[in-house]
Design a protein around this nucleic acid. Structure first.
Length: 647
DNA sequence: ACCGTATGTCATTAT
DNA sequence: CCATAATGACATACG
């Protein structure tokens, strides 16, 4: 179990990184659909765990230059974008596999009834896992549909996310269909763009050619200049130096990243090659994918940053799934790349889990949710960070969902404690009954795309939570009491029928309605406002600190970069001086040789002490007498003889 | 006891 | 004007 957990941890790290790459592209989808600001991409950055800021203030930073000083995430965002390009440039051998995976998703997402033949390959997948995968696929499916597409859930999850069924809005199915039609065109755009990207990929190596275009030309001109200037010696060294000086600043980093990604690809390819047969490898891949779905699901339910990536990454993926029914030829190219990333992630993160049977995976899925929580040192606070903003489409949905859980919850007291005690129960089985409130919030948060979607994490968690779980699972009530935040306790004391999470995350309109319409006493209203203010400020503080840390990190990196540049320039300067010295020496030697072969009027050789060679602007070499400062004292050195010489 | 870190909260300002 | 984000400053908990 420990080993498995370790694998999960490592896999999750890679998953997070790579999913963030996918996420970048994913928000392009949301951008294409026109629902979100293009700058929502910013939220996809690896360091966007707490982001609740709309970041529209960064409107002038799309080119990646001059990023907002308060948003160092942009740096990593553009780096991620470049990395994604590099991933895409790694070549096409992965595509067939991706196609398989992609078809599986299509079936699971669209037609479960016919799911037998097409997915019969994964013979060893347990029903639970299959259902879970489907559920996860469904999860990722209704993300782009803004949570309005909820399929029938499996018996296992019907009780956990079964709350989700309880939270399904009646109009969801019809709206989902309409939404699907509405999204057909943007999706086509997406697929088309993806196809274009891959066409460029087939055409050559886009990133390298791009790098060539960007970097090769100026250095080459520089090299020519140097060569013209110093056509004597040491030029090779100098050339290489100049070349590198122009290139290494950016290309080396790109190369190193490229290498790491390439390694990832190779390892995954090795994973496939290691299989005894294609069917087996496919089975393994599907297991992994299943496990990935598990992770995705769990992440969506309980974790912050990976889930965020998932929530966003699921957008184009599901879009591609939808698209397959309509325009398969385009989506083949458009979707396989994203699925390729999923496959790579699967194989990377879950490399060592092949031997683990499905039951273990099942339990691991539960463990994973806890492990994710445990790993989330930022606590759940970050998870309730935002809900996509009142202006986003998610807000209306959240209104409905929040009103839903308001009805279902029957009081705020149950929420946090239920959620907090969930992992200890969830250790036993996936069929653990999930509190409906929790689920409704999951549904709600699953659809907050432009921000970390996993706000469902209880903000009430205290640092000693995990220890409490490991120490004692029995006295849950005491633990619940101990884990409640001050505001939660205050809310309980004041009989406020909302959880802190709800109070903080509900839209302001709804909050106002609640304040007005529930007949709260002034003290309760004050408490509600304070809870909301504190909750939001808590998130803001976390954001602020994270930004600060990122800024510090970025500055440190810049310092290192500048120091390296300075060292490089110093070396370059030394080498240049050395080269120039050598050239000067040779020029002097040549001058002596030339002058020694020339004669003055009296037939004497010209003295190098008195004459020198000068190269005129017209290219002609002339002999000039050396003007000594003390020549005035010498007096009558007036015999200025010019002899034009052609060399 | 002291220190460093993490986190929550408040006050203030900006958006 | 209000809600909210951002942030400095302070308090507290914890290792």
């Amino acid at each position: 179990m420990q080993i498995a957990k370790k694998y999960f941890s490592e896999g999750l790290i890679q998953l997070t990184i790579l999913l963030s790459l996918v996420g970048v592209r994913v928000d392009i989808d949301s951008y294409l659909t026109g629902y979100y600001s293009p700058l929502a991409e910013i939220n996809v950055g690896p360091s966007s765990a707490y982001i609740q800021t709309p970041f529209h203030i960064l409107r002038d930073t799309l080119d990646g230059n001059g990023v907002h000083p308060k948003c160092p995430e942009l740096d990593s965002f553009f780096a991620s974008r470049r990395l994604l390009d590099e991933v895409r440039s790694l070549g096409s051998p992965r595509f067939p596999t991706q196609l398989n995976a992609w078809l599986v998703h299509q079936v699971s997402a669209t037609d479960r009834a016919e799911h037998g033949p097409s997915t019969s390959d994964d013979t060893d997948s347990s029903p639970g896992l299959e259902d879970l995968r489907d559920e996860a696929g469904c999860d990722s499916e209704h993300l782009p549909a803004r949570g309005q597409e909820v399929e029938q859930t499996s018996p296992e999850l019907g009780q956990g996310p079964g709350g989700a069924e309880a939270c399904v809005f009646p109009q969801q199915v019809d709206e989902a269909k309409v939404k699907e039609e509405e999204e057909a065109f943007p999706i086509t755009q997406l697929a088309h763009s993806s196809m274009l990207e891959q066409e460029s990929l087939f055409d050559g190596n886009p990133i390298l050619s791009d790098l060539e275009h960007r970097y090769a030309s100026p250095p080459s001109s520089t090299v020519v200049d140097w060569s013209n200037l110093l056509s004597v010696t040491d030029f090779d060294e100098l050339d290489s130096l100049v070349n590198l000086s122009e290139l290494d600043a950016d290309i080396t980093s790109a190369i190193s990243q490229d290498v790491s990604l390439h390694d990832a690809t190779v390892s995954s390819a090795g994973a496939f090659g290691a299989g005894s047969g294609r069917s087996e490898s496919r089975t393994v891949a599907q297991q992994r994918r299943t496990l990935l779905r598990l992770e995705l699901l769990n992440s969506t339910l309980s974790d912050a940053s990976p889930g965020m990536a998932v929530g966003l990454a699921a957008l184009p993926f599901a879009s591609v799934c939808n698209l397959t029914g309509n325009a398969s030829s385009q989506s083949l190219l458009g979707g396989c790349l994203d699925e390729a990333v999923f496959d790579q992630i699967n194989q990377l993160g879950l490399e060592g889990l092949d031997s683990i049977d499905n039951q273990l995976m099942n339990s691991l899925g539960c463990v994973d949710s806890q492990g994710l929580e445990d790993l989330d040192s930022d606590s759940g606070l970050s998870l309730e960070s935002s809900y996509g903003g009142p202006a986003s489409p998610g807000s209306s949905e959240m209104s409905s969902s929040s009103s839903l859980y308001c009805e279902d919850e029957g009081g705020a007291t149950g929420y946090s404690s239920d959620v907090d005690s969930l992992p200890s129960k969830g250790m036993m089985d996936h069929t653990t009954v999930w509190p409906p409130v929790d689920l409704s919030e999951n549904v709600w948060h699953d659809h907050s795309y432009s921000s970390p979607a996993f706000l469902n994490k209880p903000s009430l968690k205290l640092p000693q939570k995990t220890e409490a779980f490991s120490d004692d699972d029995d006295d849950g009530s005491q633990l619940e009491e101990r884990e409640l935040s001050r505001d939660e306790l205050r809310a309980r004391a004041m009989y406020i029928p909302f959880s802190v999470l709800q109070i903080v995350n509900m839209p302001v309109e709804e909050f106002m309605e609640i304040l007005d319409g529930h007949g709260f006493t002034p003290a309760q209203v004050t408490l509600l406002r304070d809870i909301r203010r504190r909750g939001k400020n808590k998130l803001a503080a976390q954001n602020c600190r994270k930004r600060k840390l990122d800024a510090i990190t970025g500055l440190q990196e810049e310092v290192e970069r500048l120091q390296a540049q300075r060292d490089r320039l110093l070396r370059e300067k030394q080498l240049t001086a050395k080269t120039m010295g050598a050239v000067g020496h040779q020029i002097r030697q040549l001058t002596r040789d030339v002058l020694a072969r020339l004669r003055d009027g009296s037939g004497l050789p010209l003295s190098p002490e008195r004459f020198t060679l000068q190269c005129g602007a017209n290219g002609r070499v002339v002999i000039q007498p050396i003007r000594r400062p003390v020549s005035a004292s010498a007096g009558n050195k007036t015999d200025k003889r010019k002899k034009g010489k052609k060399q």
